[in-house]
Amino acid sequence: MLSNVVPSVFNGLVLGAFYAFVAIGLSLIMNLTGTINLAHGSFLTLAGYLAFTLVSKGTSFWFALLLAPLLTVVVGVVVERLLIVPLYKRDPIFSLLLTFGLSLIAEEVYRLIWGPNGVPFSAPGVLGGGISLGFMQFPTLRLFIAGVLAAAMVALALFLWRTRFGLRLRAAIQDTEMISAMGTNTQLLYMVNFALGMALAGLAGVLASGLLGLSPTMGNALLMPAFVVAIIGGMGSLFGSIVGGLLVGLAISVTTLFVPAANEIIMYILMAVVLLIRPRGLFGTEGLFG
């Protein structure tokens, strides 16, 4: 019994960390600019494919893990500056639709370049195998992913709470007009904020492609759970997204073990319960976006 549950709990937590990661990127962009980025999954997939191309061209996995998210950030910022910026002052439905259109285009373009089916992309040998902890084996790849995701979240938290720029970002989320009046370049804030979201998506994309299988729809499959996680955790709360993500990951893996038919529904049930008891989400702020 235990030998079944422990690995499944562990896998659930790793999956949940992915959800949290994507949800944090989404929340960052949503909180500052009111943009629901439906193309977030497409950028995630892009990073995966870029890493795949880099590795197949002979680059090492480690270099690709660094470079692919950076390239994704560059592409993302170009898209943001050219297409999304004109919509910041308009009704949020427009940026929602624009990013929806972008995700349609991206999915088809990935299909054209890399083919409609999944491509084999695996982590280097060092990460294969497992680490024995006496009573069971932990797969090294998942441990590594968990480590990278945790480190990146700590880095993000330090950036937001321990740097001057992070302070401005958080202030802008509360009142963009005021921080603009005080002489901060809000356009720069928007850009860096979007870049942060892209970096998170990129990192998650490269790591996920080794785990979930790299295909044109990989990112979009992570997008919906990420939205649910953001709702459960509470919009605008980094900590909430992490807790929500781990909770959802855990719920999915445990349900898969005992009631496999319900594993996709369980997170929506969780969401419905949270909405009934605490509509703002577990750690959400009252009043933010109604």
């Binding site: 929602l96 939205f227 919009m235 529904i265």
Partner: peptide, 28 residues
């Protein structure tokens, strides 16, 4: 009753998420 609890982009997210529930039921 669930959708009523939120407005703005949060409402959009809720409609998105609850829509998927029916998708998965039909799928499963």
């Amino acid at each position: 009753p669930f959708l009523l609890r939120r407005r703005g982009i949060y409402f959009a997210l809720l409609t998105l998420a609850f829509g998927q529930v029916f998708y998965f039921i039909a799928y499963r």
